[in-house]
Amino acid sequence: MQKRNILIIGILLVIGLAIMYTLTATDNEDVYVENIQKERDRQYKFLRFNIESPLEEAQRKELKELDYYPIDINYRVRAKMVPVEDRKMIELPMTDGSVEKYLKHSFAEFELNGQKQRLLLLQAAKESDKRVFFLAFADGTSGEETYGGGRYINLRQDGKNSISIDFNLAYNPYCAYNPDFACPLPPKENILEIAIRAGEKDYKK
């Protein structure tokens, strides 16, 4: 199968509800957990039944469930957005050796488990909504409990200088399911030493 690049706009269409749940975060933990579970069920149904699924037909038939960490509200954080001083387009390496252009936009600064963290927020070159960002990250679980090429979260700015990040919504790129897809690798700024035990685990065939 010919290798295909995953455009961020396509990913947003596929997991658009993830943004909605981030934006409508609730203080009611039961409702919050229910929303995350609904999103996970939607992701499973897309991979299992949708014609645009990255899974081959045999994989789709065998897919019974996706593997996730337990939902933990402590992995939903509020981050301060700090503009990048040298804001410019960068070429992010892809899993097939090619590159894709993104705007190096802002740093999201937050605390997680009592530790200060900082992640680089990117914006696709063709993104028309200037409040939408792409977060690709790797952490202490990558290559062991989670996909070695990192995981993604799609974000939409929901404050003047702040943004909500919910690691329970972290998901695998298409290349985690099918190597015929080419996916952006996390920038060096987003390789964390800590283990983010939230969101989707590695796909097991």
Rank of each mutant, 00 (worst) to 15 (best):
L92I: 14
Y147A: 05
K104S: 12
N113H: 14
S53A: 00
Q115H: 13
P83T: 09
K101C: 09
R42Q: 12
L103E: 14
L66C: 06
F107N: 09
E111A: 15
S106V: 06
D67A: 12
D129A: 06
G140Y: 04
K104D: 09
P54I: 04
L92S: 06
E144P: 03
A125F: 04
Y69H: 00
E56N: 11
K61N: 05
T95S: 15
A136G: 05
E144M: 11
P70L: 08
R48D: 07
L55I: 00
V84T: 05
I90H: 03
A79C: 09
E52Y: 10
Q115Y: 13
F46S: 07
L63N: 00
N50Q: 10
S53C: 03
V99H: 13
G97R: 02
E127Q: 14
L135Y: 01
F133A: 08
L47E: 04
S53Y: 04
F49T: 13
H105W: 13
S53V: 00
R87A: 13
D96V: 01
K45Q: 12
Y68V: 02
T95K: 09
D86K: 14
L121D: 06
N74M: 08
G114W: 11
F134V: 08
V77N: 10
R42H: 12
V132G: 08
L135T: 09
Y68W: 07
E144H: 10
R131N: 15
Y147M: 01
D41T: 14
L63I: 02
A79V: 08
L122H: 05
E144G: 08
K61H: 08
